[in-house]
Write a protein that binds this DNA or RNA. Structure first.
Length: 260
DNA sequence: ATGACAGTTCGTAACTGA
């Protein structure tokens, strides 16, 4: 079972890239972020025709997340629990039915948090605290669980080509990194890093300054796996070539393969 | 160096993102 995450930076602008990649990669489940689309405008027909079921948390203009799945989606949660006043569309979760039971998947678009001296940074940290609290509840279910998405956190200096340039950025603040570690300490594994120990691997390259050509990237798209999911982990990958396509997203698809 | 991006919006400039 192949489960991928991809910040596509506009689902309507990227629909042809998305369809091409789905045909090539043939993932069973895809977590999308930054739809920049409300649900009514989401190009559902183009994906349902390819056999995908959808769970969408849309928002006009910004944010927006979705889960695509070849198998039925059940027990859908729209929005991250813990703050009724939070209207930003950054979280959708669902249980994917398989022949061997349920795999629970969440598509996460964690707040960017820049600039650090604005109210966006405390919003990011509070959102991470809510994610930690919710993850604790999900882990108590003792299911295969995959929390996938754009975390907007650079975990370690190894995860940036030029870590010193990110020292004042919300993505690399000690508070952001500490919360990511706290999340992992609950019993979640950063699956992609386990597949490339010690290697320079990135998932985002800025559109500006020739970042892609210089491989000036950062690793901020992650799949965190519960022990029950990690037990079944048989492969991981980063579909880097997608960044070189025409009209690319600034992020690329990242995936895990779980044994059936 | 008057710059170097991209998507979206009651738009043609302003915003958000990372």
């Amino acid at each position: 079972m192949k489960i991928a995450t991809w910040n596509i930076n506009g689902v309507r602008a990227r629909i042809e890239n998305l369809r091409t990649w789905l045909d090539q990669a043939s993932p069973d489940v895809v977590c999308l972020q930054e739809l920049k689309s409300e649900e009514a405008a989401f190009p559902a027909d183009a994906l349902e025709g390819s056999g995908y079921n959808l769970a969408i948390h849309g928002q006009k203009g910004f944010n927006g997340v979705a889960i695509l799945s070849k198998r039925p989606l059940e027990d859908v949660t729209v929005g991250l629990p813990g703050d009724k006043d939070d209207t930003q569309a950054r979280y959708v979760e669902a249980a994917v039915s398989t022949d061997t039971g349920v795999v629970r998947v969440a598509s996460i678009y964690l707040p960017n948090g820049n600039p650090v001296d604005s109210d966006k940074f405390p919003y990011k940290l509070a959102w991470m605290d809510r994610l930690i609290a919710h993850a604790r509840k999900l882990l108590a279910l003792e299911e295969p669980l995959v929390l996938a998405g754009d975390y907007n956190v650079i975990p370690t200096p190894m995860d940036a080509k030029h870590p010193e340039k990110w020292e004042n950025d919300a993505l690399f603040q000690p508070e952001s990194r500490a919360r990511l570690r706290e999340l992992e300490a609950l019993g979640l594994t950063d699956a992609v890093r386990t597949g490339y120990p010690g290697e320079d691997i990135y998932t985002f390259w800025d559109y500006q300054g020739g970042a892609w050509q210089k491989n000036n990237g950062i690793r901020i798209d992650h799949l965190l796996l519960s022990a029950q999911a990690t037990d079944r982990l048989v492969g991981v990958g980063i579909d880097k070539d997608v960044r070189a396509w025409e009209k690319p997203s600034d992020h690329v698809p990242v995936w895990v393969e779980l044994a059936d």
